[in-house]
Measured scan of single mutants.
Amino acid sequence: WVPDSEAPNCMNCQVKFTFTKRRHHCRACGKVFCGVCCNRKCKLQYLEKEARVCVVCYETIS
């Protein structure tokens, strides 16, 4: 899990986070992404309901 303080930009597209461009943690890899790069949901083994995942993890999992 990457702390918010260590991620000033999206770890995929590099967009800078602001008050309106929020950070989202991928529940699969723990990296920090913008809403566009972390907009998929899928079922993870260790969680009961679907969770937010990044586009890279989504392609790997599904």
Score class of each variant (00 low, 15 high):
37 C>L: 00
32 V>K: 04
42 C>G: 13
25 H>F: 04
47 L>W: 11
1 W>M: 15
30 G>R: 04
16 K>A: 14
60 T>Q: 13
10 C>I: 00
29 C>K: 00
60 T>D: 13
11 M>P: 04
54 C>S: 01
28 A>G: 06
34 C>W: 01
10 C>Q: 02
43 K>M: 14
34 C>Y: 02
10 C>A: 01
56 V>S: 10
38 C>L: 05
33 F>I: 06
2 V>E: 02
27 R>Q: 03
13 C>F: 00
10 C>H: 02
39 N>H: 07
40 R>N: 15
35 G>I: 12
24 H>E: 04
7 A>Y: 05
43 K>P: 14
22 R>P: 08
7 A>V: 12
26 C>Y: 01
14 Q>H: 13
35 G>P: 07
9 N>A: 11
19 F>H: 13
39 N>W: 11
30 G>W: 05
24 H>R: 05
26 C>W: 01
44 L>G: 05
16 K>M: 14
52 R>S: 08
46 Y>F: 07
53 V>F: 02
13 C>P: 00
22 R>Q: 07
28 A>T: 03
57 C>E: 03
33 F>V: 09
50 E>C: 08
2 V>W: 02
37 C>D: 02
14 Q>R: 06
27 R>H: 04
3 P>L: 08
54 C>D: 02
19 F>N: 14
35 G>K: 13
27 R>S: 03
22 R>T: 03
27 R>K: 04
12 N>G: 12
4 D>W: 07
2 V>Q: 03
15 V>I: 08
7 A>C: 07
47 L>C: 10
50 E>G: 09
31 K>F: 06
54 C>I: 01
38 C>W: 03
4 D>Q: 03
49 K>A: 09
50 E>V: 12
36 V>P: 10
17 F>R: 00
29 C>L: 01
35 G>T: 11
61 I>S: 14
45 Q>H: 09
44 L>N: 03
57 C>V: 00
8 P>R: 13
19 F>A: 15
34 C>K: 01
59 E>F: 08
5 S>M: 15
28 A>D: 15
26 C>V: 00
38 C>S: 09
42 C>E: 14
55 V>Y: 09
36 V>D: 13
47 L>N: 14
41 K>T: 12
5 S>G: 09
20 T>G: 06
45 Q>S: 09
28 A>S: 11
3 P>C: 14
3 P>V: 10
35 G>N: 09
31 K>W: 15
1 W>S: 15
26 C>L: 00
44 L>F: 07
62 S>R: 05
35 G>H: 10
19 F>R: 14
33 F>A: 08
20 T>L: 11
31 K>C: 10
26 C>F: 00
24 H>N: 03
61 I>F: 10
37 C>F: 05
50 E>Q: 08
62 S>T: 13
50 E>Y: 04
17 F>A: 01
24 H>L: 04
34 C>G: 01
57 C>F: 00
47 L>H: 12
59 E>M: 08
37 C>T: 00
39 N>C: 09
21 K>P: 01
46 Y>K: 12
59 E>T: 11
52 R>D: 05
12 N>W: 08
10 C>M: 00
27 R>D: 03
51 A>C: 07
52 R>P: 06
44 L>Y: 03
46 Y>T: 15
12 N>I: 12
30 G>Q: 05
9 N>G: 13
12 N>Q: 10
35 G>E: 14
2 V>H: 04
49 K>L: 04
61 I>V: 15
49 K>N: 08
62 S>P: 15
27 R>M: 04
28 A>Q: 10
20 T>M: 15
32 V>E: 06
61 I>A: 14
32 V>C: 08
18 T>A: 03
46 Y>L: 14
34 C>R: 01
13 C>R: 00
49 K>T: 10
26 C>R: 00
32 V>F: 04
49 K>W: 07
25 H>L: 04
1 W>E: 05
45 Q>D: 15
33 F>E: 04
54 C>N: 02
17 F>P: 02
38 C>I: 03
14 Q>L: 09
13 C>S: 01
61 I>Y: 13
57 C>L: 00
61 I>Q: 10
6 E>M: 07
58 Y>S: 07
33 F>G: 03
51 A>F: 01
57 C>K: 01
20 T>A: 11
22 R>Y: 07
30 G>D: 05
20 T>I: 09
2 V>S: 03
62 S>V: 15
58 Y>C: 07
14 Q>Y: 04
37 C>W: 00
37 C>N: 00
43 K>W: 11
47 L>V: 13
50 E>R: 09
62 S>L: 11
46 Y>S: 15
21 K>T: 11
59 E>N: 10
39 N>S: 11
27 R>W: 07
14 Q>W: 08
59 E>S: 09
42 C>D: 15
31 K>P: 02
43 K>G: 10
8 P>T: 12
53 V>E: 06
32 V>I: 11
31 K>Y: 09
34 C>A: 02
33 F>D: 03
54 C>H: 01
59 E>I: 06
45 Q>L: 07
40 R>G: 13
39 N>V: 05
20 T>V: 08
53 V>Q: 06
31 K>E: 13
9 N>L: 13
45 Q>E: 13
